[in-house]
């Protein structure tokens, strides 16, 4: 956010600079410098203090599996993970090439015979695991939104539904993902037995657990937003005798949209947090499983690998939140607070 603002002032300055007199130019350069100092320096300073403190603490703690890694070690571990990914990709490409060669040769020698295609069986790399995690959280989040938003609209607009669902919301909302997960896994094992599995069972269990836990903020905020729609706007709907659907789409949803989005944002945040725990236990091949596997193998790399995961999780969580904010700006009307 701050960076964006900074960029725009900087670029304006550059565009407008040429015809200006030297003193004005100096003045403008100074104001740009000031803006840079205000927006860039404090975070950099914070980062420096953080890294220094981390290095100090890390150097002074010895664990059963070696020293706590400092920033440098974690950085190297991240680099190693990316390199490993690149290596795996090359191997996969080479495998495909070899297979294509073999197929050609096979068909040349025995035309018309069936050729069995083989999948490359390399293990998922760290980046693959990130992608899996994102897919899972997305699936769970979409599932939660599809349930929470309509239900929230019902809750907010019909007091009867509100009082009927209220106790359930109160009771289920504080339940931890760790309690849901075993139930979900057992149910998924029992019920999810398709002929052709599009998704892994572990994926389905994780996504459902994410959905169960991230349902509540969206549900509560949606129903709050719907319940606090301006009375006058509802009176307009009554005078016009709007049908239920028109009332919902033209008045209730647009007016509750800011709170719906707040709810969805919180939901996505909760979902992302829950996901890691769900993946650890359900062995869904994402970031959670990565952390768990690293913990289990207990090598000298364990701590730095897990720290890489921690930073990745934080970074992605932050990006997801920003993405939701951007999306909200896109869909809600501009004149906030206007009647």
């Amino acid at each position: 956010m701050m960076d964006v603002a900074l960029e725009s002032t900087a670029s304006e300055a550059v565009v407008a600079a040429p015809p200006a007199a030297p003193s004005a130019l100096r003045e403008r350069a100074r104001s740009v410098t000031r803006a840079v100092a205000r927006t860039v320096l404090p975070p950099l300073l914070g980062l420096a203090v953080f890294l220094a403190a981390w290095s100090l603490v890390a150097a002074s703690i010895e664990t059963s599996i070696g020293a706590v890694p400092g920033p440098r070690a974690v950085w190297d571990a991240a680099g190693a993970l990316v390199e490993e990914h690149a290596r795996e990709r090359t191997k996969a490409v080479e495998f495909e090439a070899r297979q294509a060669e073999r197929k050609e040769a096979f068909l040349r020698e025995q035309p018309g015979e069936p050729w069995i295609e083989r999948q490359y069986a390399g293990k998922p790399t760290y980046l693959d695991q990130i992608v899996t995690s994102l897919k899972t959280v997305f699936a769970g989040f979409v599932l939660a939104s599809l349930v929470a938003v309509p239900l929230g609209i019902l809750c907010g607009s019909i007091p009867l539904v509100q009082s009927a669902l209220g106790p359930f919301i109160q009771i289920f909302r504080p339940v931890s993902p760790l309690a849901w997960l075993p139930i979900v896994m057992i149910l998924v094992s029992a019920l999810y037995t398709p002929e052709e599995a599009w998704f892994e069972k572990s994926f389905v269990s994780s996504a459902i657990t994410v959905a169960l836990c991230s349902l509540w903020p969206a549900l509560i905020n949606t129903s709050l937003g719907v319940a606090s729609v301006d009375r006058d706007h509802l009176n307009v709907a009554r005078v016009l005798r709007l049908g239920w659907w028109t009332k919902v789409t033209k008045i209730i949803v647009p007016s509750a949209l800011p709170l719906i989005f707040t709810g969805l944002r919180l939901s996505l945040g909760v979902g992302w947090m829950v996901l890691i725990a769900a993946e650890m236990l359900s062995q869904n091949p994402g970031l959670g499983k990565f952390v768990w596997d690293m913990f289990q193998n207990g090598s000298s790399q364990t701590l730095s690998m897990i720290l890489v995961a921690v930073f990745t999780i934080g970074f992605i969580g932050c990006l997801l939140d920003r993405a939701m904010v951007a999306l909200e700006r896109l869909v809600t009307y501009g004149g906030a607070g206007a009647r």
Partner: peptide, 28 residues
């Protein structure tokens, strides 16, 4: 019950802020 045969102009306008002027009138 309320109905369009008794149109109300509310004290605080009660326009829908997310609709344009045109859409506010054409909604009615």
């Amino acid at each position: 019950e309320p109905g369009p045969d008794r149109a109300v102009v509310f004290q605080n306008y009660s326009l829908l802020p997310w609709l344009t002027v045109w859409d506010n009138v054409s909604l009615a």
